[in-house]
């Protein structure tokens, strides 16, 4: 027998003075192979055109659809209803600014993060269009890619105790970004420059290492290793001082 699913969805429209936060219920018959992307579109198309949520790639690549599903921050497009109980509770990711129902403003936060960690290759070299590319070991390329896989979904921030207290905390995603540039031989930032950037409460020392982030990261980024790497690098420059 096909199940009837009960969705309890957090509703709030911050642009409407009369809106008050509440949970709203929707019933949906479970069709085969249903995931939360298809389910939420069905609710919007068939039951309630006012419901707000964000999907772009619906393939686990773009990081748009982070939300809290029965208490756990994860990607909705990659969540199948068959793995969930009859009652499915959906909340927007905490930490980010609310835009409406399940939709939050990750864009501004991640852009500020990119500015504050100066998320680009720092080099004096100019690009020379006539020259052969600089060589790179394929292993290093793969290592960089391993960190570069972060899709800025924000789940790690939603799962992080420090981030809830210090809004300036870079979070796992920010520290991971720093790690990504630290291992990149093209980036010429010095130990001192890294130290200044990272060794603050917003940076690596704000992290209390409970690894809530590592549990929830839908891309299974090796956050534990990244933190260890960044810390080690910082300790080296600390002892060198």
């Amino acid at each position: 027998m096909a199940r009837t699913l009960t969705f309890k969805i957090f509703r709030y429209n911050p642009f409407d003075e009369n809106s008050v936060p509440k949970m709203q219920e929707y019933k949906l018959d479970e069709t085969p192979r249903l995931n939360l992307y298809s389910a939420l579109y069905r609710i919007k198309d068939e039951l309630d055109p006012t419901l707000m949520f964000d999907f772009v790639c619906r393939a686990g690549i773009c990081g748009s659809c982070g939300m809290t599903i029965n208490g756990r921050p994860t990607l909705a497009c990659r969540t199948l209803t068959k793995d969930l109980p009859d009652v499915i509770e959906l909340h927007p990711l905490p930490f980010f600014k609310m835009l409406g129902d399940l939709s939050v403003d990750t864009g501004i936060w991640f852009r500020e993060m990119a500015q504050s960690v100066e998320s680009w290759i720092h080099t004096e070299k100019e690009f020379d269009p006539t020259a052969e590319e600089e060589r790179m070991d394929n292993k290093i390329a793969n290592d960089i890619y391993e960190n570069e896989r972060c899709i800025e979904c924000g789940c790690c921030l939603a799962g992080c105790a420090t981030a809830q207290v210090y809004t300036d905390f870079l979070g796992a995603t920010g520290l991971n970004r720093i790690g990504r540039f630290m291992i990149d031989p093209r980036d010429k930032r010095t130990q001192e420059e890294w130290f200044e950037l990272v060794s603050t409460d917003e940076g690596v020392f704000g992290c209390i290492g409970m690894m809530g982030c590592d549990d929830v990261c839908p891309k299974d980024l090796p956050l534990l290793e990244v933190f260890a790497y960044v810390r080690r690098k910082m300790m080296v420059s600390l002892t060198a001082k």
Partner: peptide
């Protein structure tokens, strides 16, 4: 080819010949 090399300069971790 120039565009690919340029993106390598700007940080794309292209897979490399082994």
């Amino acid at each position: 080819p120039i565009a690919m090399r340029e993106m390598a300069h700007y940080g794309v971790p292209w897979n490399r010949v082994v």
